[in-house]
Computed example of a mutant assay.
Amino acid sequence: MPSRADTLVHKSAELSATSGFPPGFCLTDELSDYVQLLQGCCRSYADDIEFDKLFGEAFTKLNSRGINEVSLGVLAGRAEDMIEWGMRLCTGSGGAQKDIPMALALWQHITSPSTLYPPLSQPPSRRILATAYSLQAKVYKDRAHIDVETLQIGDMHRAAVAADAAAAQGLVTPIVLFIAQFVAMPFGPRGDASLKDMPQFACLSDLWCIWERRNEEMQLEQLARDRKVSRAPNAYRCAAEGCGIEGTKKATLLRCAGKCQGANKPHYCSKECQRKDWKRHKPMCKPGVPSPANGPIDHVALPVEEASRSLGHGGGDALSNHSPWDEDLLPRVPGKERMITVPAPGPRQNGADSILHDDPCDA
């Protein structure tokens, strides 16, 4: 299941070229981390996220309220400010010095009040509670992954318990679904076991209820997507032979900027794949040639350099003033996310063979 948090990494690289941000906008690692919390723990997984707007909103939020104002809200017992102050502490943004344990303690105070902080001025709403639980789940999930091969099972259990509590409040965030997916994922040499089989995970009924519902949604989404792909397969699949990358939306892949038309117009995941496929596609890059973009063709094509010259870079029978693999000509929609589905290179899945370590605190 593609995660919107994964998309954030790809999208942030393009932000500097997108207009419409507040004056003085500057993309930093701290801001990116803050936005990841905002998107992954404070929003529903079903929200239609426009990342340029989200970054602009986060930048304005961090700069419109100083740390003194937010800390005064914490002292007054406002749960919203405890959420905000914790997010700044967790990411080292908005003038706060990074302190993840303190951030975690603040969010725990919202869900289980203690004497460490002022009492809450009023009972928190279900959304505030769900957000606080989601943020706790994110911290525990990060802490559970000691390295690529090692999982701290005690912290993973804490993450799952917090995700279950967030789901019970009715706000299903991307981090909640990520944790459910990870816990349900098969692992081991035969792939016939999962953390979900363990009693301490199996009892998290709210987490598994929303996970089953999300699986049903994904199956329906896949059926709808398959119908769309069957009508226009070239719009959703990279045309380069052997690539295998498929897009979840038409806007995902880059469309050839040549003069090929209709079903003959191929789409590519990258400039490299478009260049690789040029020998096969070149004869079709003219209007009115009825040949499928992904089908084989017996034709001795010009080398890439000579083909480039024939397309306006050195005279000849020019079809265009630019090379069809010129990235500047490929359609881009500012502010729209682009996601791709990458086939797994082997049977292993996302840490499926990770070593599970018991937390001594759970002994």
Rank of each mutant, 00 (worst) to 15 (best):
C260M: 10
C238I: 03
R237K: 09
E246A: 13
R255K: 13
K249Q: 15
R231I: 15
E246N: 15
G247E: 00
T252Q: 03
G258M: 02
G244L: 03
A235K: 04
R255L: 10
L253D: 04
R231P: 02
Y236D: 07
C256E: 06
E246L: 08
K249P: 10
A240K: 00
P266E: 00
H267L: 07
R255T: 09
C238E: 00
G242A: 07
I245Q: 04
H267S: 15
K250V: 10
A257C: 10
G247L: 00
V229K: 02
L254H: 11
A257I: 00
I245R: 06
C243F: 01
K249D: 14
K265T: 12
K249E: 15
A232Q: 12
K250L: 05
T252G: 06
C238Q: 00
G262C: 14
Q261L: 15
G247T: 02
A232Y: 14
Q261A: 12
A251L: 06
A257Y: 07
R237F: 05
G258W: 12
A263E: 14
N264C: 13
G244P: 08
R237C: 13
G258F: 08
I245C: 13
C243S: 05
C260N: 09
P266V: 10
K249I: 06
K249M: 13
R231Q: 13
T248E: 14
G242I: 04
A235F: 02
C238H: 00
L254W: 10
E241I: 12
H267T: 11
G258Q: 06
K249C: 07
Q261C: 14
K249S: 14
A239N: 03
Y268E: 04
A239E: 00
V229D: 03
